[in-house]
Nucleic acid binder design. Structure first.
Lengths: 229, 229
DNA sequence: TGTAATCGTCACGGTTCTGTCACGACCAGC
DNA sequence: GCTGGTCGTGACAGAACCGTGACGATTACA
């Protein structure tokens, strides 16, 4: 699960900093902008997964920026959370009408912020429907998150599951350890290449005698999933 | 099409009468209550198809009653239309947040009332009443709001009930904590993901030895309801 | 108003998973 | 047979993950 990017647009550095720290601790990537103009530009350039917008800012206000973002094709789907000072509750409806997805009143706790942000992101990212794959009686079903061999369930760990899923959807092609780390582990983790070997081993073990042969070593290169040979 | 029942809750007899006449002419069955307490009781007893609720009433207010009705399982699905005096427009959002389905400002014409009432009813009644589900002797019956194990009643809390209902109508599929929060708790609540674990625990406890195995942990992902394995 | 039920959160501990290492088997070319 | 490189394998410590009991807060109900 790759971490999401959040753009913070607020004119007060202290607030930005506070939010940034909270979000980074929760494993989000953070971008900052100190006014609506640069915020707008960054939203276009970096395509963040969510925008945190201060209501009151010198120059273009947050709500105005929200309207603009919602109006433009490229950013219309981008979830927006408005930040507002206490006592401006009445503006809530205005904010929501401008297209904001949620609305947080200052002061707020970092916990609350992260929780609501998660909730908004959850709503915004519809679950993808993945098809199940089957090969020689070996079946992987993403919906139930299950691997079966001729109907019987297979014991398989999380990483082995992802590895197998990748292989079954990318058959007949050899991948280097490096490529597998990218695809299965996710781009920015530092892991020894040999670690792949260990998980290949574990995957083979999980697959058992019946299906071991599907995971093939390509000496000098890496591994391959194939029914042939 | 059998005629629908509408419950009117308003402290002014004249208004009740006016509405009642309009509705009866449009072939609705009408129930009347003059305060929130009896309104609440009648909503439970008579299960009207829709509730017309005056905002301002002596004692418990209409909006408060709306909140209660939405909170209780038995009446949560019941559509609510709030009636309010002119000039209280600002409260609109409050009303909608309390769970009201529509909002009519006095004074209104009988024609308008009936029209909007029809619209709400149309939206609110999707095809099909909820059917009871049974699996391996475990039965959940939405009508009676009961869970039984081979006929014997099971102690189960509200949240556990909703969780079980969701699971039983979505078997064989793994859900992340996040998805469960969306589906069972409702989109915009801000709750820790681990809270799901706790309710899973409570659900398992309620299900007892006999049915525990149906609620399965999918390590690294979430949970699943399944009869297999 | 007090009591019971329910809820969300936390902290602790057991279990499982993960990444790394070390050792040895295997392979190709000399 | 020797050699350098590659891969399989078992072991292990730390991290991640999940189950569980307890607690305070809120709400329902008498």
């Amino acid at each position: 699960m790759s971490s999401k990017t959040v753009l913070i647009v607020d004119d007060e550095p202290a607030i930005r900093e506070m939010i940034a720290v909270a979000l980074e601790m929760a494993d989000y990537r953070v971008l900052e902008a100190e006014n609506a103009q640069t915020g707008h530009a960054m939203a276009l350039d970096n395509k963040p997964d969510l925008v945190l917008l201060d209501w009151m800012m010198p120059g273009t206000s947050g709500i105005e920026l929200a309207r603009r973002l919602k109006r433009e094709e490229a950013t219309a789907e981008m979830p927006i959370i408005l930040l507002t000072a206490k006592g401006e509750e009445d503006n809530k409806i205005q904010g929501l009408e401008a297209g904001a997805d949620d609305y947080i009143t200052k002061p707020f706790s970092p916990r609350e912020l992260v929780a609501r942000l998660k909730a908004v992101l959850r709503r915004a990212t519809p679950a993808g429907v993945e098809e199940s794959v089957e090969v020689e009686g070996l079946k992987l079903d993403p919906a139930s998150h299950r691997v079966t061999s001729h109907g019987g369930a297979l014991e398989i760990g999380p990483t082995e599951y992802r590895l197998l899923q990748f292989f079954m959807t990318h058959q007949e092609r050899a991948y280097t350890r490096s490529q597998l780390l990218d695809q299965v582990w996710g781009g920015n983790v530092y892991v020894e290449e040999r670690t792949v070997d260990v998980h290949i081993r574990r995957l083979r073990k999980s697959l058992g005698e019946t299906h071991q042969h599907l995971v093939q070593t390509v000496r000098g290169t890496g591994y391959r999933f194939s029914t042939r040979e």
